[in-house]
């Protein structure tokens, strides 16, 4: 990835990651590299501290918050995470050290910060206090993966209806699976094996409460 020319043009995102590791050795678990991209794996209890450092340290100045996203590594067939991972979920923060010609801050490099999240306690501290733009993505991750963000000001479902049950982008949640009954008593094809009740949908005019 080409970067803006500057005094530190030779550096890569991995160098920045190592800088963070030197400053916050207790927070950084690992550094992954692939070409010019670098991933900084951070313990979830230190994510706020790390992002704060990345944003406020003048030589790094990762001030542009792109997004954060969730990944579920569970293999529903075997019931354990794929690729030999020890944890089921990961939250990936996508940051850019945006180059600002006015203050000469920022290197134009991009860094991904990864937070492993275990399945039995899917809680991550929120970063909305550092980057207000995390509000929507964190709500989306909560909606889709059920990872709760501790301290989020308004942690509600974002895309799914408020009374939806389950978190659709988890790997053990089937793609389809809505039972559609035909007049002759048979059921329509569902893509997944499992059938999921959708209490939000008032089949036959019934509401969520009545179905339960």
């Amino acid at each position: 990835m080409a970067t803006d020319a500057g005094a530190d043009a030779g550096l890569t995102a991995a160098d920045d990651a190592r800088k963070v590791q030197a400053a916050l050795p207790h927070a950084v678990l690992d550094i992954l590299e692939n070409g010019n991209d670098a991933w900084l794996v951070v313990d979830r209890s230190s994510i706020q501290e790390t992002l704060q450092y990345l944003r406020d340290e003048p030589s790094l100045a990762y001030r542009f918050f792109y997004e954060c996203l969730g990944v579920d590594y569970l293999d529903p067939g075997t019931g354990s995470p794929i690729l030999g991972k020890a944890h089921r979920f990961e939250v990936v923060y996508n940051l850019l050290s945006i180059h600002d010609p006015r203050s000469q801050m920022g290197s134009g490099r991009r860094l991904f910060v990864k937070v492993p999240v275990p399945a039995d306690d899917p809680v991550v501290p929120t970063v909305t206090g550092i980057f207000p733009g995390a509000a929507f993505p964190e709500r989306e991750i909560y909606d889709m993966f059920g990872i709760r963000f501790d301290g989020h000001p308004d942690l509600r479902r974002l895309l799914m209806p408020d009374d939806w049950i389950g978190h659709p982008q988890r790997k053990d949640y089937p793609l389809g699976g809505e039972r559609v009954q035909f007049p002759n008593g048979t059921y329509g094809p569902s893509v997944g094996e499992k059938v999921v009740q959708h209490p939000g949908e008032g089949f036959f005019g019934r509401t969520a409460d009545e179905i339960e």
Binding site: R63, F64, F65, Y66, E67, I98, R110, G133
Partner: peptide, 22 residues
């Protein structure tokens, strides 16, 4: 902080265009 990019960001005076930056 909000992750606003594209023409909206450029209208605020930041010449950041992915086609140029990367």
């Amino acid at each position: 902080g909000l992750g606003v990019s594209g023409p909206t960001l450029r209208a605020s005076g930041v010449a950041y265009d992915v086609r140029k930056a990367s």
